[in-house]
Amino acid sequence: MPVKTKKPKPLVSAKGVYLSFGKKAVLINTNVKVRPNEIVTLIGPNGAGKSTLIKVLLGLVKPDRGVIKRQPGLSIGYVPQKLTLDETLPLPVHRLMTLTQKAKHPDIIQALKETNVDGLIDAPVHTLSGGELQRVMIARALLRKPDLMVLDEPTQGVDISGEAALYALIGTIRDRYGCGVLMISHDLHVVMGTTDRVIGLDRKVCCKGKPAKVLNHPEYTRLFGPQAAQHLAIYTHQHSTHHHHHHDGDICQHHDDGACRNPNHLSEALPDDHG
């Protein structure tokens, strides 16, 4: 980092978090920070503790050791891994939006417009496609005027063409609201272009930093196998041809539709990671 400007205080931070379920350690000495206006992506294999770390940061799970700090009065918009609604529960979208809070109709419409799904306000949640549901869930989080957005695998159940659009949307939201974003992702090829920082987690943090730095990290190759190294080539290649460089502290606009959407690369990246 060549030039150090004074960074804003973290919205949320975890220090020295240790958590075990029975005898199995799930998180070991884990440190994470999310600042305003930055996108932090958690990557890692199955069972690496990514979702658990998010739950710890949200205060849903108490760690055995470690300190969690949240800014006082912090408003969090959480988009959980997958909403599986029982088929017997009839729920229109506007009711899903106001599940834990009251909201005025125009505000609901406005939030749904932000994510381009305002036409679905009266649709039953069961009839939504994976991408539509994720957009509704993000709109739902926006309704809370969040300082911090937390997304657990936002592109699960979303088709390939929808993935890049969804990440672009998350980037736009960050730009517009200046909120911090913490997300878990498996779509390494797309994420590398949208995220400011990457944290590789395998029960403990094994590599972190700017995407380009993490891609070069030997731990990254260890975590995701030698095929993942090919992403480095794809990533650097794209970024040299499109002249998109990460600058320290800059807000990067990577709504680059030239991003790698080849489905083969998706499966290459994480051969055994589905959860």
Binding site: G59, L60, Y78, P80, L83, D86, L89, L91, L99, T100
Partner: peptide, 19 residues
């Protein structure tokens, strides 16, 4: 009714939102 419905739809989500 409201909090019960919220934890029925998604318990973690409801808890994260203060229920």
């Amino acid at each position: 009714w409201r909090p019960l419905l919220a934890i029925t739809v998604h318990e973690d989500l409801a808890c994260a939102e203060g229920i």
